[in-house]
Amino acid sequence: MLSGQQSQSHHDHIGDVIAQLEHLVVGKTTQIKLSVATLLAQGHLLLEDLPGVGKTTLARALAATLGFNWNRVQFTSDLLPADITGLSIFDVSSQEFRFHAGPVFTSLLLADEINRAPPKTQSALLEAMEESQVTIDGNSYSLEQPFFVVATQNPTEQLGVYPLPESQLDRFLCCIELGYPNSDAERVLLTGGDRRQMVDDTAAIATLDDVRLWQALTSQVTTSSAVLDYTQALLQTTRNMAGQGACANGLSPRAGLSLLSMSRAWAFIHGRNLVLPDDVQAVFTSVAAHRLTGSLKRGAPVTREILNLVDVA
């Protein structure tokens, strides 16, 4: 464990990171915090939104601020798994196969419109997310840590989409939507300079090592038995609600683990070494909604109802 002073300095550092992100992505404090928390909880982020509300800007701002390398893959219906993971090509000069690493070999991967790609391609990415490695022609290639995927998903009501199955939605720790900015924020966006330029001009204020350390510290945040009771009650209630038909399926134990690690990250970025029910409540919708109903929009009312239903312990 770190001493109080050291942990205080880490909290301040994260505060600086968040402040800089707020400067780049205007008026989206909650979403920024959730994104950072997802990273610290070693999960992946799913953004569910319309084009043009700042998904890419958020991903790029994260990469720039934290000093990450980043790649972007635009998913289309003819995208092949090799287009993501890379492939071995026969090198005539050396008379052997040489591996050409795909865009997945980076720290931050922005997977745009993930549900436009066919399921085979989707699953190639999801394997990389889950295993942190890529297997090509019998050879396994490990991915560098941290590896953070920010995927965007178009609303499933649109045409030409392959909706992610529940098992794959489960791989995304957190699902958020950015939504339209409020009028003040929009005014800043319209009058301010080019965001892309601003992001490019931004200097990194943290390193990969910082992020790794924060991830380790996050996993050490205390969850008392009271919080575990509360989490269990929430999980049980989702299952009861599924039984009553309010949502497609209840939360799995893995979802419970995700909820806890996300709560820890939330507590950590708020400068606390213990998880409060407030933390669980703050992240519950973004962790549970897409797992319960397959979409944030449909799940949010259900999660709100559950939070009102279950009393904190």
């Binding site: 409060l276 407030d278 409540q281 939070l307 009102n308 239903l309 009393d311 904190v312």
Partner: peptide, 9 residues
């Protein structure tokens, strides 16, 4: 205190 309302709230 409402149901589901945390101590802080």
């Amino acid at each position: 205190r409402n149901n589901g309302e945390t101590a802080e709230a």
